[in-house]
Amino acid sequence: MDLFTIVSIILIIITVITAIIAAEMKDLLSAAIALGIMSLIVSILFYMLQAPDVAITEAAIGAALSMAVVIFAIRSTERWEK
């Protein structure tokens, strides 16, 4: 098993864990941040799979912009899920 495979398996596991955190967290702000981390790691995965175009887009939109929009939305309602 080479380094590439090990790193990608670790990244995939982190992706799954952050996704579960994002879904299960009662604190919406933390959930949004978990979502952002997930996007970031997915963009690294894209880069490793030789898709730099997609990686740049995913990083800019997934990790930065959509997280910001979600956080703005949370700010205008309530932080805790009921």
């Binding site: 730099p52 175009d53 740049i56 887009t57 990083a59 800019a60 939109i61 930065a64 912009l65």
Partner: peptide, 8 residues
């Protein structure tokens, strides 16, 4: 890269 990431 390109238009979409640049715009983002």
């Amino acid at each position: 890269g390109g238009g979409f990431p640049g715009g983002a």
